[in-house]
Design a protein around this nucleic acid. Sequence first.
DNA 1: TCTCATACTGTATATATATACAGTATGCAT
DNA 2: ATGCATACTGTATATATATACAGTATGAGA
Lengths: 201, 201
Amino acid sequence: MHSLTDRQRQILDWIRRETEANGRPPTRAEMATALGFRSVNAAEDHLRALARKGAIRLIPGSARGIQLKDGPPEDAGLWVVGRVAAGQPVLAREHLTVRHAIDPRTFRPAADYLLTVIGESMRDAGLLDGDLLAVHKSPEAREGQIVVARLGEEVTVKRFSRRQGAIWLLPENPAYQPIIVRPGEDLVIEGVGVGVVRLEV
Amino acid sequence: MHSLTDRQRQILDWIRRETEANGRPPTRAEMATALGFRSVNAAEDHLRALARKGAIRLIPGSARGIQLKDGPPEDAGLWVVGRVAAGQPVLAREHLTVRHAIDPRTFRPAADYLLTVIGESMRDAGLLDGDLLAVHKSPEAREGQIVVARLGEEVTVKRFSRRQGAIWLLPENPAYQPIIVRPGEDLVIEGVGVGVVRLEV
DNA sequence: TCTCATACTGTATATATATACAGTATGCAT
DNA sequence: ATGCATACTGTATATATATACAGTATGAGA
């Protein structure tokens, strides 16, 4: 599939939501109204582009003839990433242990994998030992986000903060100490937490 | 909902399959062709009957304007149950708000629905305000399980315990008091917690 | 510099589609 | 005995809808 433009992805997402909500795809006129086009042909053009790039299929001469290509792919779901050795990509096949049938788009932004939380350092954020953290892959993080960070050999889940020219990885448990990472130290942000799944209560 | 005739249920099932397969509801003409009517009006008549009996909703003047009232809930995903009025079954259609594409069997035993946790009374069990508790329907609970209990008008999530001939509903937060339910009081166990889904961290 | 894709406005039209109206036949309830 | 719902056939039509055609403006690539 060719890569979509921002606008096209925006419109594809809208079509997906609309189809889900109404149980049927929109018409060109409905698209124009909702998306703010003054011409129905703008909708037609976008549909053509999306079809050409393989994101949808158009059924000619048929009302609401828009088929979304990626419905529920059978390989959908989220993998639980196991022990990750240093320097290796988190999502390498050999680290994937169990797959759970959970749509990645349940979370915003969409989750890429699940990571088992070990220890009690994030207890007060409601992240208990054994919880599965839904992680969105991202090389950077914003203030206050829960991140999956790699420090040399170690992979850890902490809250992200910038203070006094350093990066602070804050636990959410008074029994634990913050980790202060000074510039130049070997810190890699693997992703940000977007949700939690707990399989026992 | 009035009871459907055999023929009407047959046709409703066909519409459901067709909608699922094509991603959109059929037209009257498509129904006539597939179901062997020589007149499109036969389809129209059936749709009117199904709408009158509440099985579907028809959107006037709109192409493929057939909305299925009851999507198959067990089919895929878990519903988030909204506010439940007293004396009404939790899983009544009108209480279902949002569906998440999570396989119920991700949890053991399988979850039947998701319930939004309100308040901080179970904070120390890692259940925060807004969390979705995966619930397995069950009229009874074992010692120490997290239960969804109904006390008259109120639906509450607590830890279940039997003590001194009464049932104790224990919070997991020192700021809250246990609820003690003596025999004869109006307590209904709706189900037991089997997991948690959190959509924000 | 020219071309091409993107992202639209604006107008027009063939046809896909919903839907009304007029029937026929059957069975069920009152 | 008569009305009413079911389950259709057959015809007709207003309009919802897809889609062509003619433009404008912008930015990226060759």
